[in-house]
């Protein structure tokens, strides 16, 4: 079967083109779905196997990145989104999409999918937007289906508000224990695995995120979000230093994430509710 992916668009989302491309490269069928087509019932979210909220500047990041789009989903699509997650289908939010999922309470989330916000993404300590490459390390103890068998990848970060924080530090321990802190910034000169909770120096950690957190998953491991852009490293010739490397050209380091989800759907779609 060919998994179907709903890639959300509209209101300033702007990474939908490459997000559609990576899912198609991974063998899925991906559609650009304007949020309002879900609100007005023209398109049913339940017809899809995967939902992706791409990066961008929804509503210009005014009132906090992802806030207004998060509200549109939280209030306008509440039941559709909850049913989708409860059906056991994978969801990904990248950059602004991650901010949306965090602000609407889907990440780090809870078992009931109550859509209660428990974390946030604050302004980078630098105080401004930056586009630079970072190295990510995936948590080998995480059950997140999106990062299966992944160790490290190099991808660009492109954000001004990516510092993962929460108001209750105890929650961090709980998420850590549950394997929900799925991906962290890491010093590329160290040997895998070496992720650390001590905040790494700038720019290894581009935003001074707590515990170097770059992305998290929900308790089920199906909903995943991250600030960096794996979809921007879909081909080897898009790497930051590819002209210095003796490589065989082909898929880029970010593709594995999308392959994981497509594979998961192929193996589990019969159990979707």
């Amino acid at each position: 079967m060919q998994p179907k992916v709903a890639v959300l668009s509209g209101f300033g989302i702007n990474c939908e083109t490459e997000t559609i491309a990576v899912f198609e490269m991974a063998g899925a069928k991906a559609d650009r779905v304007h949020v309002n087509r879900l609100v007005n019932g023209e398109i049913n979210l339940e017809d899809y196997h995967i939902m992706a909220v791409p990066g961008g500047f929804s509503f210009g990041d005014h009132l906090g990145s992802g806030r207004l789009m998060g509200n549109r989903l939280r209030f306008g699509l509440r039941n559709q989104v909850r049913d989708f997650v409860k059906a056991g289908k994978p969801v990904i939010g990248i950059c602004n999409g991650f901010q949306v999922l965090v602000k609407m309470g889907l990440l780090p989330g809870d078992d009931d999918v109550s859509l209660t916000q428990t974390a946030s993404l604050a302004l980078n300590d630098s105080g401004h937007y930056e586009n630079r490459w970072a190295t990510l390390e995936f948590n080998p103890d995480s059950h997140c289906i999106w990062i299966k068998d992944m160790t490290r990848i190099r991808v660009p970060v492109r954000h001004g508000e990516g510092k993962f924080v929460t108001s209750d530090k105890q929650l961090l321990d709980e998420w850590e224990k549950a394997g929900q802190l799925a991906v962290k910034y890491v010093d590329p000169s160290t040997i895998y695995p070496s992720s650390s909770n001590d905040v790494l120096p700038y720019p290894i950690s581009p935003n001074q995120s707590w515990r170097n957190i770059a992305g998290v998953c929900d308790p089920s491991g199906l909903v995943f979000g991250l600030m960096p852009h794996p979809e921007a490293n879909h081909s080897t010739w898009l790497g930051a230093t590819w002209t210095r490397e003796n490589i065989e050209h082909g898929e880029g380091e970010g593709m594995k994430i999308f392959h994981n989800a497509v594979k998961y759907v192929r193996e589990h779609h019969s159990s979707f509710e």
Binding site: T17, E18, V22, E130, R158, E231, A232, T241, T243
Partner: peptide, 22 residues
């Protein structure tokens, strides 16, 4: 220049910066 997004759309082959330290 770092505060401009130069990679959205996933098409950027030769970027504004290169080299071992980018």
């Amino acid at each position: 220049v770092r505060s401009y997004d130069h990679e959205v759309i996933g098409q950027s082959v030769i970027k504004p910066f290169c080299g071992v330290n980018h």
